[in-house]
């Protein structure tokens, strides 16, 4: 059970890394997830801090701006820097979102939905294959939260995701909170969705908090609140089907203190452990 590394608690984390108190270290997660775009072409305190974290913990890379669903060609300089970053931290895979981030050379810095169609899925799959080749590590795509059906859909979202996974032969970063948020906004059963996912494709999970925005009449995936119980239940249910897999708790807004975040992580860990207990076959003497 890892956590997304955020600058808000970096000072506190470094202080603990420098501490001789073993207990301070044991309370920390066993691995961290980082977004390369926040460190690319940057020097100074922030990347130096990441180096210190990486000396003690494994790091998984999770990108924000590849624009897998985009129609503009990949940005060569971006991919070269990304490749260098991913290899520098020896990430076992690199993940990014099943979305587009801009068009006509403009980048909008958000995760924007793709039409749920066969052609769109094949386009994304071709881009994932290309990215995999150029990065030199396996790719995993993340199912995004979305608020708009962008164009006519030939298939439900889960079929769209499965098609991309099959055609690209890549991994899935299954964001359990995104499934829940989409289920609320688009009216489907989140368990039925996850039941249709090929669990052999799942290499990692995400959980996060969300908020209901009455003005928009939407549940928004803010990453700015605690994970709610129904999402924890969905995590348990998923782990019961998948078994052990790395999970990352994401928090991007209203980031609490490291202690508070670790308390939140403990709740997620408990949900994870409950799933594992359910997944494990009963042990004991044969009847």
């Amino acid at each position: 059970m890892g956590v997304g590394l955020r600058w808000d608690f970096l000072d506190d984390l470094l202080k603990r890394l420098g501490s001789s108190d073993e207990g301070a270290l044991e309370a920390l997660p066993p691995f961290w997830e980082v977004s390369p775009e926040n460190y690319m072409r940057r020097g100074g305190y922030i990347p130096e801090s990441l180096e210190r974290v990486a000396e003690r913990f494994p790091v998984i890379t999770h990108g924000l701006q590849m624009s897998i669903g985009g129609v503009d060609p990949f940005d060569d300089a971006y991919l070269a820097e990304l490749r260098s970053f991913v290899h520098r931290f020896d990430s076992p895979w690199h993940s990014d979102h099943l979305c587009f981030c801009g068009v006509d050379g403009k980048i909008l810095h958000d995760l924007l939905p793709m039409p749920q169609s066969l052609g769109s899925a094949r386009h994304a799959a071709q881009r994932v294959r290309e990215a995999q080749d150029r990065l030199g590590v396996p790719m995993a795509v993340e199912n995004i939260s979305y608020y708009l059906r962008l164009g006519h859909a030939d298939m439900p979202e889960v079929d769209f995701v499965n098609t991309v996974l099959d055609e690209a032969d890549c991994g899935l970063l299954l964001d359990v909170n995104n499934v829940y948020v989409n289920a609320q906004n688009h009216g489907f059963d989140p368990r039925a969705y996850i039941a249709q996912i090929d669990m052999d494709r799942v290499v990692q999970l995400h959980v996060a908090g969300h908020e209901w925005r009455p003005d928009d009449e939407l549940v928004i995936d803010t990453h700015g609140a605690d994970v709610i119980d129904p999402v924890l239940d969905l995590l348990t249910w998923t782990i019961a089907r998948k078994g052990p897999v790395p999970v990352i708790l994401e928090r991007d807004n209203d980031v609490p203190s490291l202690d508070q975040l670790m308390a939140e992580r403990a709740k997620v860990q408990a949900a994870y452990d409950a799933g594992l207990a359910e997944a494990q076959p009963p042990t004991g003497p044969p009847a």
């Binding site: 669903g69 985009g70 129609v71 587009f100 801009g102 068009v103 006509d104 909008l108 924007l112 793709m114 039409p115 769109s120 386009h123 962008l150 164009g151």
Partner: peptide, 8 residues
């Protein structure tokens, strides 16, 4: 896809 993305 391009046309849809231009709408956004």
């Amino acid at each position: 896809l391009r046309a849809l993305q231009r709408v956004v």
